[in-house]
């Protein structure tokens, strides 16, 4: 997803224990208004994923005036995103945050910790433990080593790999592809990022209630659910419809 030619992305968004972390590069050669334009594009690109999210915003050593700061808040507001904290090395920026009623911190060296955004069990799994997630940046997949049960929601902004089942009543929402080494009985929405048309959903047994790829949603077929196991399958988007193929090693090309 990242353009590899670029030295640094001016706007990076990644998952952390406390929610999502958005870093706006403090390179003074980039105008803040350009940063905001890119931020807006990025958020619009992953709107389904980011909407109503909780963000921590890292501003480095950039000094912000009130207009700049308000402009940034306005963009986050547009996506119903709440800002949990502002991290800045500059006093003037921190006082802007204070004026807006947002807690602010000095940057610390502590690496951002991995994220598990599983609704219904706030915070419990985030510190590693059962979730066993490794730190990732925006391009890395989220690896889950357990069954996702009814009522649990897994959200991740890139690919998701699950070693276990996704049971009926559970939901997985991913920016990229979803691979389940187990049975899918619940709902999976893959490819929710901009350019997510190429995402696929693979499972050893695919008997979902609903499957979504990008902006297309398909309902599970009752007859198919009663079928004896047809083996591993892969769902992908072809000409605007979700198509199931047998997921064989020589055909299992993963795009997206």
């Amino acid at each position: 997803m990242n353009a590899t030619g670029k030295k640094f992305e001016a706007v990076t968004i990644k998952g952390t224990a406390g929610g999502l972390l958005c870093r706006l590069l403090d390179d003074e050669t980039i105008a803040f208004s350009d940063l905001l334009a890119e931020l807006s594009d990025r958020l619009a690109g992953g709107e389904k994923f980011f909407r109503k999210g909780r963000f921590t915003v890292e501003l480095g050593n950039r000094s912000l005036f009130k207009d700049d700061f308000d402009g940034m808040l306005e963009i986050f507001n547009r996506f119903d995103i709440s800002i949990e904290a502002v991290i800045s090395g500059v006093q003037s920026t921190r006082s802007q945050a204070k004026l807006a009623g947002i807690p602010s911190n000095l940057p610390n060296n502590q690496n951002t910790r991995p994220a598990l955004v599983a609704e219904g069990q706030p915070g419990k799994n985030s510190a590693g433990g059962r979730g066993g997630v490794q730190p990732f940046d925006s391009a890395e997949a989220y690896f889950i080593r357990r069954t996702v049960r009814s009522g649990q929601v897994i959200r991740h902004h890139t690919d998701v790999i699950i070693l276990g089942d996704v049971n009926a009543g559970a939901q997985v929402i991913a920016g990229g592809s979803v691979i389940v080494w187990g049975t899918v009985r619940g709902r999976i929405d893959a490819g929710q990022n901009a350019g997510g048309e190429g995402a696929v959903i693979c499972a050893l047994s695919l008997r979902p209630t609903q499957l979504g790829i990008h902006n297309v949603v398909a309902m599970g077929n009752d007859d198919a659910l009663k079928d004896p196991d047809v083996g591993p399958e892969m769902a992908s988007l072809q000409d605007g419809t979700i198509v199931l193929d047998s997921w064989m090693p020589h055909r299992g090309r993963l795009r997206g």
Binding site: G120, Q121, K124, G129, R130, R149, S150, G151, A170
Partner: peptide, 15 residues
């Protein structure tokens, strides 16, 4: 069974 699945998830979440 569906409700049991939900409960198992909550019990696991309670560590």
């Amino acid at each position: 069974v569906r409700d049991a699945d939900r409960i198992i998830g909550l019990v696991e979440a309670a560590e």
